[in-house]
């Protein structure tokens, strides 16, 4: 327990929390409603998450 309290993650939560939200925008409002500073990064997986298409695009130079 003592080790957990000393961990960087635990230290982080003792200070003001600031969040970068990646992907699903729905989390942004929940965090804002809790008074937490949040920056949203509009991101989706490459090729809509289709690994075969993503691999093909990589070969085509994207």
């Amino acid at each position: 327990m003592a080790e957990l309290e000393e961990s960087p993650a635990a230290q982080l939560l003792k200070a003001d929390v600031k969040v970068v939200n990646v992907g699903l925008e729905g989390f942004v409002k929940d965090l804002e409603d809790c008074g937490i500073g949040v920056v949203h990064l509009d991101w989706v997986p490459p090729a809509g998450g289709d690994p075969e298409m993503a691999a093909l695009l990589a070969k085509l130079g994207v």
Binding site: V44, P46, A47, M53, G61, V62
Partner: peptide
């Protein structure tokens, strides 16, 4: 077309 598919 590559960028359209890549980015969605």
């Amino acid at each position: 077309v590559r960028l359209v598919v890549e980015t969605g």
